[in-house]
Amino acid sequence: MGQIAWLGPQDPFPNPFFEADPDPSVPGLIAVSERIYPGQLSRAYQLGIFPWYSENQPVLWWSPDPRMVLKPTEFKCSESLRKDIRLFCQNTNSQILVDADFGAVIRSCATTSRRDQDGTWITHEIMDAYTDLHEQGNAHSIAIMEDGQLTGGLYCVAFGGMVFGESMFSRKTNASKIALASLSAWCLQNKIEMIDCQQETAHLRSLGAAPISRQTFLEQLQISLNQTKIEPSWAFDKSILQYWL
């Protein structure tokens, strides 16, 4: 049994592509650090690693096996969701705002109550770190607005041709699904083949996500990062939802 690396500010991550889980009793846990250091989050994502921990814990860095992913071509747009998308598009007081208020979206993801979940993993440190990533152009928000109110949305991370979904929230039925439908349609439009969903849940399965091996995920990640960098515009609006109608 190996030892999980404790990272300082300049220490490199173990590369999960080449190195097995250091402690098989905690599968997927790659490293630990006292805090999220500057530049660390960017380096982690490009190795297929992400932070997930609770308040008053050290920062736990993960690369799970299997890895849950959503291929935009396999997004499941149910009849009830398609109906809500149609109503949303017909409402002259509804809109999708991309990167308009990243802070509001990530705070909503952190504070919206969820069934069977006590508290949140989106700590103040997480919000600060992803806001920095947003300011660098590698994290994005999608806000669903209806009658001037934020009813749902999501935030994600993007490097090269890979999009990493982070968290969604809804204050109205299907609002977060509308945000994911818009992201999936945008990915299809820009030939992005995979949205990383990190860990398996029944909710993600219902939307078309499926687990793949860590090795397969990391291979696809490397292909996406090594491609000529995709620089698509994130300035889409609700018209992108016409793809599902």
Rank of each mutant, 00 (worst) to 15 (best):
D196M: 08
T216L: 09
I223K: 13
E231K: 11
S239R: 08
N226Q: 15
P211H: 13
L207W: 04
Q227E: 11
R214G: 00
E219R: 07
Q215F: 08
L225P: 02
T216V: 02
K191C: 05
L204I: 08
H203I: 07
I230N: 07
L241W: 03
K191W: 01
S213M: 02
S233F: 04
Q222Y: 04
R205P: 11
E193K: 13
Q220I: 04
Q227A: 11
M194F: 03
S233E: 08
W234N: 01
I212R: 01
Q198K: 12
Q199P: 07
Q199F: 15
S206E: 09
Q220K: 15
K229G: 07
L221Y: 04
H203N: 11
L218I: 13
I230V: 05
K191A: 12
I223D: 11
L221D: 03
T216K: 04
F236G: 08
F217N: 05
S206R: 09
T201I: 09
Q222D: 07
M194S: 15
E193R: 14
P232G: 09
N226F: 10
E219G: 06
I230M: 10
M194V: 06
S206Y: 10
E200Y: 07
Q222G: 03
I192P: 01
T216I: 02
K191S: 10
K238V: 06
L218S: 01
I192K: 04
Q198I: 06
A235R: 11
P232I: 12
Q220H: 14
Q222L: 05
Q242W: 05
A210F: 09
I212Y: 01
L204Q: 04
A202H: 14
D196W: 10
A210I: 00
E219P: 02
M194Q: 14
K191P: 01
K229L: 12
F217V: 12
T201Q: 03
T216Q: 14
S206M: 07
